[in-house]
Design a protein around this nucleic acid. Structure first.
Lengths: 204, 204
DNA sequence: TCGTGGTAACTTACCCAAAAGTCATATAAG
DNA sequence: CTTATATGACTTTTGGGTAAGTTACCACGA
């Protein structure tokens, strides 16, 4: 039987995997796990569905690969910033600046870890939990410092404040996705203005 | 053919509809639209799927009914608060207090209007847009006031700040869902403490 | 008090489309 | 001529939606 498009296109596996991960991350990040179909990803990549299954095993396997790549990126950066000496609000702003720079080409990466439609059990949930914990732990640490400065050490207060902080980052990333023309630098300037508006002066 | 469970159970339509809406709202609110199946709702209600279709026409019709019931509740309350004379941060806190009180039994109601997996076209989108606009408009109004006090009138700044504000409410509702033992009053006290920690004193 | 027929409440068993996942096979390249 | 890269055409599963029928209840006349 003739199969006009079959046969290798000369793209090495690693390159192809990278390409697939790029496209899949964008789809998963913007549409969510359950609303994304493997066929759509294959289409966008200009390849066939079975190739994706060859390389990643399943839709969940593909999502996991996206998580691993994106999670390492995010967590490494946040950890790097945490090692700096900024404290309190300043540390938050530094983290934000790092996130904006890191995610300038792909703010949707952030959403991978906060997708309500992703499976809540199995390897995906484990993977999400792993990175969420890594990120959450650092957020928690920063928030604990901040709250400590104000004399509050209540664990539930800290937990709630951490949730709020992550929610703020989340909404900024979402807002950014809806305003793709904004540069990382513009986003950061904007955040500083919002902070100023809140505190009625600069927050040194 | 024998059909052991068929026939009326003596539950009047309105009662049944209310029961279905209660369960559906919880499922949609916690799992999201696309991750919720009509069969699952029927199961939880102890009835069969076709009954739901009899009463609500379609999955979308059911979601819309949830939106209408929940949206009126939320928007009315937020509008009531907006008519008060609180301004700036105070108005935000008043709104929060109202939300906590209103949503004490069902914090997930809030999520109905911020579900990324809901259809983005058709009657549902319209219905969401309607309430989101009603809520968003008031949020925007409050934020505009707040920013105005600080001398900032930039529309994009205001848009971003509104997104952040809605994100904060969202994360507090999510946190609440994970801590169902907290009362509305406790939640509010907690928020006041968080605010105090941020501003280093009470925010009068 | 007993049919009896109309209606509201309800179910089983199915259809169908979409999307996950698989199999057998084809081609390029070294 | 073997292997990595690749595909068309299939099967399976899932979930929204439907057709056709069953059962309980109630009003009403004899």
């Amino acid at each position: 039987m003739v199969r006009p498009n079959a046969g290798t296109k000369g793209v090495p596996r690693l390159d192809r995997e990278t390409q697939i991960l790029d496209i899949a991350s964008e789809q998963f990040g913007t549409q969510g796990f359950s609303a994304t179909s493997v066929a759509a990803i294959a289409d966008k990549a200009g390849i066939s569905k079975p190739l994706i299954y060859n390389y990643f095993g399943s839709k969940e396997g593909l999502y996991e690969a996206c998580l691993d790549r994106g999670g390492a990126l995010l967590a490494d950066e946040i950890e790097r910033i945490a090692r700096g000496d900024a404290v309190g609000i300043e540390r938050g702003m530094a983290t934000l600046a790092g996130m904006f720079t890191l995610l300038e080409p792909q703010p949707y990466l952030w959403r991978l870890f906060f997708d309500a439609t992703a499976p809540s059990t199995g390897p995906i949930a484990d993977s999400i939990a792993l990175y969420a914990e890594r990120i959450g732990k650092l957020a928690d640490e920063g928030v604990t410092e901040l709250m400590g400065l104000a004399g509050n050490a209540d664990p539930l207060d800290i937990s709630a404040m951490t949730a709020v902080w992550l929610g703020i980052v989340d909404s900024l990333m979402n807002w950014w996705m809806e305003h793709p023309d904004e540069s990382a630098d513009q986003m950061m300037q904007r955040c500083l203005r919002l902070l100023t508006a809140l505190f009625g002066g600069d927050a040194e």
